[in-house]
Computed example of a mutant assay.
Amino acid sequence: MPISAPEPLLEVGGLRSGYGKIAVLHGIDLHIGAGEVVSLLGPNGAGKTTLLRAISGLLPVTAGRVRFGGADLAGGDPRAAARAGLVHVIEGHRVFTQISVTDNLLLAGYDLPRRERAERVEEALSYFPEIAAKRQDKGGALSGGQQQMLAVAQGLVQRPRLLMLDEPSAGLSPVLVDRVLGVVRALKERGTAVLLVEQLIEKALAVSDRVYALAQGHLVLEAGAGEADLPHRLERAYFGQDVPNALHA
Rank of each mutant, 00 (worst) to 15 (best):
S4L: 15
A5E: 15
P6C: 12
E7W: 09
P8S: 07
G13H: 12
S17C: 05
G20S: 11
A23Q: 15
A23N: 12
I28S: 00
I28Y: 02
D29R: 01
G33K: 14
A34R: 15
G35A: 05
G35V: 13
G35N: 10
E36N: 08
S39T: 15
L40E: 04
K48M: 03
L52K: 12
A54K: 08
I55S: 02
T62I: 02
A63C: 09
G64I: 04
F68A: 01
D72W: 01
G75T: 13
G76S: 14
P78N: 01
P78E: 08
R83N: 02
G85F: 01
G92H: 06
I99V: 15
V101G: 05
V101L: 10
T102I: 14
N104I: 10
L105C: 00
L106P: 05
A108C: 08
G109K: 04
R114H: 10
E119F: 03
A124Q: 03
L125M: 11
Y127L: 01
A133S: 14
A133C: 00
G139S: 08
G139K: 07
A141N: 15
Q148L: 04
Q148D: 10
M149C: 05
A151M: 12
A153F: 07
G155T: 02
Q158W: 07
P160Y: 06
L163C: 02
L165M: 12
L165S: 13
L165I: 13
L165P: 08
A170G: 09
G171Q: 13
L172S: 05
P174M: 12
P174S: 09
V175N: 05
L181P: 07
L187Y: 14
E189V: 11
G191I: 10
T192P: 11
V194Y: 13
V194L: 07
L200G: 00
I201D: 00
E202Q: 15
K203D: 12
K203G: 05
V207T: 14
S208W: 09
S208M: 07
Y212W: 04
G217F: 10
V220H: 12
L221M: 09
A225G: 03
L234V: 03
E235A: 14
G240Y: 01
V243D: 03
